[in-house]
Write a protein that binds this DNA or RNA. Structure first.
Lengths: 339, 339
DNA sequence: TTGTAGGCGTTATCAG
DNA sequence: CTGATAACGCCTACAA
């Protein structure tokens, strides 16, 4: 009667119509099952005619594998995550997994999020910029769900992770600035809620101290362009005689550059040197040409999925950490310090 | 024995342990089912103790609702889609639906993609920047899967869609340029494979003709910053005496601006006026301050999900089109044409 | 309010 | 190679 009466056609319907058993139909739609050419042909024909599509939900129920991987992103994410997300999706597709997207805004949302994860029976989890504590990781282990952390090392090496070596990259940048004779630094750090933010800040401070620069001023942003601008406004580079700004990511670095130009009338890099981190596209645009570290996100995302699939297929395989050093991109945002 | 022997605990296990029937357990975890306070408490307690989580897959199988919405993005997407994606996800979350992400690169991938959609029993589909032809839409109708198109009107009004009124927005931009005395235009259009790209180009051409400017040169890009640069290189603005460039989106407009500055040594807007479309964040950055049309993506995404949910709950409800006019953002990329 | 029994659409296991 | 039959874990009448 009504337009949505059409019941979905099932393997049973096809079986009856084709004059074979239901299991025969099932086998036709599975890889590497033994089916004679004749029946396969017959089944395929009637299936097509009837518009039959296997029901993945029913399959999930019996095989205990959903074919879905949860990807968890922070809403306060770094600007390069859209690109990472797209690469993750691509890699998952090649491994015949689908991407179920979740976002995590604050600590409060975590438990609700986890409920979803458990009930949806995802095969695994990729954590992008999500701050999982040790307890959360333990829960995943208890539920038997493999997790790969992206750009977040866990101290005890009990979890899988892929990361970019921030220490190495920031070291390169700072050394470059020191080579250019800079002595008055400012650190514009990412937010403290971000693991990566904290780590990059700590690494910068340590490296600077090692080179003899202590008590370097720090202003925190939230990874956004606007927060970069605000950070510089908060720490007047002229009054403070700052000659070099080390930023926690590229987006803030671009904000710093624009604020320096507009509010303080400075020229980049002649009056102020600025470095970032990530290697996002806009950093390379002509109006900025930021000197930064480019993360090897293709390799990182591919490895993340490789590790995840490995863990899904063999849950006993040991946890791995894979790390890459980023590549120094010399733009045009660093110059000799004026003496 | 081995570490992954722990079977998932089911409602049966909880029932046995709590001394009630399996259906009692089921009811406890469903809204608005009649359960006595006593048993609810008892069940909840043992469920917690045993770490029971309802299995969404089994539920999907019986309720015939997966709680998942497929979102389809083109890989050649406009730069503003990451933001749109995030808003879509947020809106879905409020409606208790999960986001299953698919990307569509070329025509070839379409059939493989559709197979996935059918088998995964998604409740509905949001098509972001995906070029669905009429036949594809018909297939969705046959499968009873509601679809909402984002920024793509379908001529016969048979499909749901939310869009920004490109005609209106581009009209505003062109009128603004004409008011500033411009006479020599260049259109940097989006790719022809993109519905939006074709529409914005057609609208621009028509509007210009209506105002007495015919045979305006057109160069096509692929929506990327680099393609904007290339487009301008291909159509030397100095030789051609171009004074105003109308771009198919913001990213290309930024490329045009940078190419004008670097390669042709032009000042924006004194020597060349540039307008874009979308209202992405970088367009507003100090180094660009692009005059553009901002799409109301919050309203658009919310409406898209509202419509989708409505269709899911009542498949007989009629198709809708909702359209908004964008908002003119007057930046600093348009000036009086030099005569 | 509770329990019983049937089914959702597959895949897996076995005989044949 | 093929066909019964039993899961998978839950929801939903229906009867008590």
């Amino acid at each position: 009667m009504s337009t949505n009466d059409k019941k979905r056609v099932t393997s049973y319907d096809v079986a009856k119509e084709a004059g074979v058993s239901q299991s025969a139909v099932s086998r036709v739609f599975l890889e590497g099952r033994s089916v004679s050419k004749a029946t396969r042909k017959k089944v395929l024909a009637t299936a097509n005619r009837m518009g039959y599509k296997p029901n993945a939900i029913a399959r999930m129920l019996i095989t205990k594998r959903s074919g879905m991987v949860a990807v968890i992103m922070s809403t306060t994410a770094n600007l390069n995550y859209p690109e990472v997300l797209s690469l993750v999706n691509e890699n998952l597709r090649h491994r015949n997994e689908r991407l179920l997207l979740f976002t995590l805004d604050d600590e409060a949302g975590l438990s609700a999020l986890l409920e979803q994860i458990w009930t949806f029976q995802v095969d695994g989890v990729i954590a992008l910029a999500a701050h999982f504590d040790h307890q959360t990781l333990t829960q995943f282990k208890e539920h038997g769900i493999p997790v790969v952390l992206y750009n977040r090392k866990v101290s005890d090496q009990s979890a899988n992770s892929v990361c970019c070596n921030h220490e190495h990259g920031i070291g390169l940048l700072i050394d470059l600035l020191i080579d250019h004779n800079h002595k008055n630094f400012l650190i514009v750090s990412g937010p403290s809620v971000s693991e990566v933010g904290r780590e990059r800040r700590a690494v910068a401070v340590t490296h600077l101290e090692k080179k003899g620069f202590s008590d370097v001023p720090i202003v925190s942003g939230d990874y956004s362009y606007d927060s970069g601008r605000q950070a510089l406004r908060q720490h007047d580079p002229v009054k403070s005689k700052t000659t070099a700004v080390i930023c926690g990511n590229d987006a803030m670095a671009l904000g710093v550059i624009d604020e320096a130009r507009e509010t303080f009338g400075l020229k980049i890099p002649e009056d102020l040197s600025v470095v970032g981190f990530d290697g996002i596209n806009p950093a390379n645009w002509y109006s900025y040409q930021l000197t930064t570290i480019k993360q090897p996100i293709e390799q990182m995302t591919k490895a993340a999925i490789d590790i995840l699939i490995e863990q899904i297929e063999d849950p006993t395989s040991p946890a791995q950490l894979r790390m890459w050093s980023g590549k120094l991109i010399e733009g045009n945002s660093v110059a000799k310090a004026k003496s």
